[in-house]
Amino acid sequence: MTFQEHYIVFMTIFRKEFNRFMRIWTQTLIPPIITMALYFVIFGNLIGSQIDKMQGFSYMEFIVPGLIMMSVITNSYMNVSSSFFSSKFQRSIEEILVSPASNGIIILGYVAGGVTRGLMVGFLVMVVSIFFTKLSIAHLGVLICFVVLTAIVFSLAGLLNGIFAQKFDDVNIIPTFILTPLTYLGGVFYSIELLSPLWRSISQINPILYMVSGFRYGFLGISDINIFAGLSILILFTIILFSLNLYLLKRGVGLRS
């Protein structure tokens, strides 16, 4: 296939994915905004007003980047895992599997859909946060790199979940038992400087810490981690997850008998 042909296939999958989550915007775009607005009110305004400054910033200012990142992570992951699984469930995935679409382009198409939803929700949450605090951007380039790479990583992880999922419950197991705990323990609500040395070391194994801290660095110019280490981890995860998805699609795991 030529580059132009690959591009048409990619755009078709991406358009389908985009239309899918826009068609059900009341389920995909509105709920995360309401949830995050509640976080801003309860943790930021009510509880946060009783908390001292965190690395020189008010608690509300400190948690906003983390909460934006949390919504990007959840939405990019859920978009791909649920969309891919429901395509399997309805067998509409066969439309793509019988076509000459390459596995790499199938991955890119689904990931582009997940990234777009993640970034759209992240942007909307950011807009809502303006009503609660003053937002400033310290390093725009770093901020964009971290948010885009994180959305890519979690879209790829969501695809992996969608490939392996056999029933609807399987789509929710990873977000409930792994993603949410890692996100809450990934420095969204606190700086790891507040932890004991042991827990600080343990926290550094959590990849989400690097994503949240890197993103916060983009907004506030403060970070718990080395930014280059964070970027390297994100790139490494992108390569590993893309390769793994490619291998599984080629083998037809979860798709072909």
């Binding site: 042909e5 296939v9 755009m11 999958i13 389908k16 509409s92 066969e94 439309e95 076509s99």
Partner: peptide, 21 residues
């Protein structure tokens, strides 16, 4: 039947065309 039950008829057919570039 192996198409998305939530999509429009025209989208199902034109998307398939897109998969064939």
């Amino acid at each position: 039947f192996n198409f998305s039950i939530f999509e429009k008829v025209i989208d199902i057919v034109t998307n398939q065309a897109g998969y064939y570039a």
